[in-house]
Nucleic acid binder design. Sequence first.
DNA 1: CTGTTAGCGCCTTCAA
DNA 2: TTGAAGGCGCTAACAG
Lengths: 338, 338
Amino acid sequence: MKRSPTVADVARLAGVSTATVSRCLNAPGTVRPGARAKVDSAIAELGYVPDGAARALASRRAGTIGAVVPTLENSIFAKGIHSLQNRLAAAANTLLLASSNYSLDQEEHEIRTLVSRGVDGLVLIGTSHRAPVYELLRRKSIPYVNTWTFDPRGPHPCVGFDNRQVAGRIARYLLDLGHRRIAMISGVTLDNDRASERVAGVERTMSDQGLLLQADWLIERPYSIVDGRTAFHHLMSSGPRPSAVICGNDVLALGAVFEAEAMGVDVPGDVSITGFDDLELASHISPSLTTARVPVEHMGIAAADYLISRISGRTFPERTELEVQLVVRETTGRAPDE
Amino acid sequence: MKRSPTVADVARLAGVSTATVSRCLNAPGTVRPGARAKVDSAIAELGYVPDGAARALASRRAGTIGAVVPTLENSIFAKGIHSLQNRLAAAANTLLLASSNYSLDQEEHEIRTLVSRGVDGLVLIGTSHRAPVYELLRRKSIPYVNTWTFDPRGPHPCVGFDNRQVAGRIARYLLDLGHRRIAMISGVTLDNDRASERVAGVERTMSDQGLLLQADWLIERPYSIVDGRTAFHHLMSSGPRPSAVICGNDVLALGAVFEAEAMGVDVPGDVSITGFDDLELASHISPSLTTARVPVEHMGIAAADYLISRISGRTFPERTELEVQLVVRETTGRAPDE
DNA sequence: CTGTTAGCGCCTTCAA
DNA sequence: TTGAAGGCGCTAACAG
């Protein structure tokens, strides 16, 4: 196993000092073209690749940004990550990705790992993070940004939208269609601010109309198709049926729509169903899904821009609110007459 | 911005040398319990977090594994990555993830970035990688493994299955159902060995029966639902219709099934449709999708085990073949009588 | 079991 | 514009 070439090897071959080689790599403009050419060809000849660890150690900048998402298996996160990564790559930053499986414990662990790997910044999802995490980031002065959330009064930088308000809009839309018997299949709200805010938004909007989201019509389930199916099945087979079911995200809603089909329940004739996210699939299933379009691409871009700005000492708004659009498709309709 | 504590700070506070602190971190067993306790409490008191860059530089091990996938938006890759990550984490390795958008150029770029970030090993997808990439990995002695492929005679370590053979089995299954007019919606085969092997498998199996996969019944499209739809639409609306459509993966197949529904084409009465991957969704759509179940979890585990073994100097089979199961569901049936 | 002492490969003042 | 030289924080011999 031969030793990889180092700056010293390149310098020797090019007949310059290691400092000049380093400058060619990091600030080519400050090196005379002739010298630069010699260095470049030496690099090519040796197949030199800079050592990131040494570079990070000496410069105190790793050129990596970390992100911790709840899961990669929901493609809505994958999409956001994709956009984040593209924007970061444009600024010569690499993305370090980890997932927490919706567990704060695991999230803390992943964040500690990322921090010790030396990330220059961190993208998180939601606002519910362990206090020690925030403390660690503060102590190490590592910029971070919470996404999928917008909290104008919170202490943390964020890029996203107001989950409560958007969920409220969905509820209001159904109320306007005449629905009164509204149920909700929520994601697990424990340690999940997005999920609990969405429930709160629905409850608030309903109570403004003097309506109550009954306890047995509020079902909490992990975000999976199967769980959406079983929850929907339960709602439709025990006691009086709701005329509308609000789902915490599109995955649950997909499950609900599939189960309706399997049960022979007509959507939206018998029951309206709504999602949250707007997956690509939402527009293709039949009936196509009414949902809220989360601006994941924008969110990725804005999060990247925030961190890049902070890292390079530039200023950037601490809080960015993104617009969420209600996409009305075929799973919703007027409430059936009583 | 206060300086982060270093081993020296911990050593001072604990009244030991930096070497002992280092040992507590890396080989606790070799330190006397008393000393270890003092070091541990010093670490806690200072909130010390090891510097990964320095560690990597000094030990020549970064504790990170890189992976480059074509896309994160197809959840089948996300699932595999998830399994890979879990296995790696169990061995105290972090995953560095990048995506190539099905472009070898971009893949090469991402791999170079990962290598310069100092990954200890690399997980790739398929066998089609640029020669300079293989050359770089060889020169730097970085272990790597190709996944989603099994090539017993190739020069590269691999974990996966024989795409050609599995596609052949799908074709044979349709032939056995009496289908003769078989079309295929393939992924883009350029630079994609999985896609082209699958086409080859179908062609081979058909030609063994004296049948030909006609050029106008072989459509290449990017892996997306919309492309699956348009391709299927085209197949069903120009000239004689096929009685079966083999899709290069589940995403394309989903598109085909959705479009069939939209066009009023009965599946499998008028036409049978098959996928490849077995996404969670495949079993939930209606009719549910006949497909080949790619063992992504096993693949992630085996890939992790291979790299971990290689990195720690242990031996591990260079080639692992995984079983792929044909999952027969509702989108396939006997060929209609002519 | 523990301390001393060199580096790991690169960047970054500081002078020239 | 360039070179010399001292670390960055940690690990890994090597003594003790």
